[in-house]
Design a protein around this nucleic acid. Structure first.
Lengths: 343, 343
DNA sequence: TCTGTGTGCGCAATAGCTCAT
DNA sequence: TATGAGCTATTGCGCACACAG
């Protein structure tokens, strides 16, 4: 018994009694094929279980219908959701998605990932790589493949899709000020991320605009609950703090824990607002008020943008073009972790 | 100006003054190429920026070096981690990874995903699809491509890699019993998932083995904190409950919230143990004792298993073979959410 | 020991051929 | 004699591999 070979177009043609070109016409819905012939071909296709060979088609058409996604850490909630949105949208547009995870966001790793994807022949690449360094590395990739960054802040030197971090920070800060707090403290995310920078800028700008004092922000080394907890212990020792805006929900969780351990109540003693609105935040103690970003939608929009650019290669060059910087507005989801300050 | 064509092997050969075959030899590190010739070829490769065409190579070798991953919901922590582990390992083995997300785990969706991946020519598929229905659908896929299920319980009718859920449940239950609790209540995950079934079985078996009463388990419709919260409100009304084992950490989070709202303290009034050991659990209120599963490792092992099977196609048929059911032991991470019952 | 020639992988696209009307 | 529907023949895509030389 020798290895069964998968049927090819010629086999279908032979069985249907036509040429392989006629088979091709049927498969591509070209006109000028008699109905009877078409049926014979389709019957042969079914009988043999014929599947077109993607490699051969790619070789002939010079199109792979494959897009690449570079992601720093898909285990985080945001990146995971974006990846999901990307894949959904890709399927609708009949594209395949290949992922390349990178362990660190230094220039070399990112360029390596780009190389691997290009080797595979992707027609475009979406980068879920929100760190400043990654964007910088990508901005001058000598690449003939279109690139789109997603969830990378709004000022990347690349085509990009991102939530409006400054607007989100403004929502949170204004909400707390409107509740009557004299000022708002801020747990900053890792400053190597554009998102963290922009949220901090939005928070600061809002305080200044409203004439509130700008307290020293507490900068985190990463986005984790652990970091939120450690910063939270410092917050707990400062009797002036009545309201805190956290750069993300994980940090807020750590903060809540630290405050609770210090005997402070949220929101009675201190109000807290987060960022991201992960599904679990509703069940934090207490239920967390948070700025919501629609990661799914970010992914979908990024994919659509990439497909536009792939379809129109010149478009990729006009990177300063406004239409290639899609900004999605966040919303504030009010729960119970923030209230008026005590008199 | 016409479209610049990417350089091909023939271009390299011409520039180096050799035949394309010699170029191929150099690229594949074959022996029998004089050093000077090799250098000329490599110089030409660099000068032209030559990259081999993956489609052409695939056509010639009949190998795509691409594997597929089908995932139900990559936004969950576990699946996201497994995907990450898979991709890491794939890179090491010089494979590409294509993802196919499915919205629901019915037979049709799953088979569609398999089809899409096969159309692309993947050499094997890893399924992150822990629902009973998905496994059933896959078990009789008329497929010539090797399949491996991951995180799918330990009794799938497929090659699989999974954590030992029963052992994990036993760890948790024994731990609580050893603390002095007369019995342990259980929040069951959605019973359509093998993991939920197996954890329930492990819990029940342990209670029986130890001669403890088996209370009615509380079954959830999904794995979310919301479900944990709703079941938790029922737990809070039952004065007999002193210890609860939750099928996962999200549900435990909801439970903690419900207990807290009911004025019950954890662990003083009720001890709680979770499952998964997500990074945030340490910062729950209180810090959650949980059964840890190493999702990364699950992903890596699944990939290695798949590669073995791909390399030895006959291996895929021996599905009953023990070596194709890899079981990884979980560990108990003790924190502060469980203690001895009050006298 | 080194290097070149020829062929096939499976498909798409182009040109061209054969009947009808 | 033209027209076009319905089909066939041929070539090229870029590479790997067997076989020479």
């Amino acid at each position: 018994m020798d290895t069964e070979r998968a049927p090819v177009m010629a086999d279908v043609a032979r069985l249907a009694g036509v040429s392989h070109q006629t088979v091709s016409r049927v498969l591509h819905d070209h006109p000028n094929v008699r109905a009877a012939t078409r049926d014979r071909v389709l019957a042969a296709v079914r009988e043999l279980g014929y599947r077109p060979n993607a490699a051969a088609r790619t070789l002939a058409t010079r199109r792979t219908r494959t897009l690449g996604v570079i992601s720093f850490n898909t285990t985080l909630y945001g990146p995971a959701c974006m990846l999901y949105g990307i894949e959904q949208a890709a399927r609708q547009h009949e594209y395949f998605v290949t992922v390349a995870a990178v362990g660190t966001l230094d220039r070399r790793s990112v360029l390596d990932a780009v190389d691997r994807l290009r080797d595979q022949g992707v027609e475009g690449i979406i980068v879920i790589a929100p760190q400043t360094s990654a964007i910088a590395a990508l901005a001058n990739v000598p690449s003939d493949v279109p690139l789109v960054a997603v969830g990378c802040g709004t000022h990347a030197a690349l085509a990009s899709v991102a939530v409006d971090n400054e607007a989100g920070a403004e929502l949170a800060t204004n909400y707390l000020l409107d509740l009557g707090h004299r000022t708002v403290h801020h747990l900053v995310g890792p400053r190597s991320w554009l998102d963290a920078q922009e949220r901090e800028a939005g928070w600061r700008g809002t305080l200044e605009k409203r004439g509130a004092a700008v307290p020293e922000p507490l900068a985190g080394v990463d986005w984790t609950a652990r970091t939120g907890y450690e910063l939270g212990r410092r917050v707990a020792t400062d009797p002036d703090v009545t309201a805190v805006f956290c750069a993300n929900d994980h940090m807020a969780l750590g903060l809540l824990r630290a405050l609770q351990q210090a005997g402070l109540r949220v929101p009675e003693d201190i109000s807290v607002v987060g960022f991201d609105d992960m599904p679990e935040t509703e069940y934090f103690g207490p239920s967390l008020t948070s700025v919501r970003q629609d990661f799914d939608e970010l992914g979908r929009r990024a994919l659509r943008l990439l497909i536009e650019i792939v379809g129109d290669p010149d478009a990729g060059l006009q990177m300063a073009d406004e239409t290639h910087h899609i900004v999605i507005p966040p919303t504030l989801v009010v729960r119970t972790s923030a209230t008026r300050p005590r008199p």
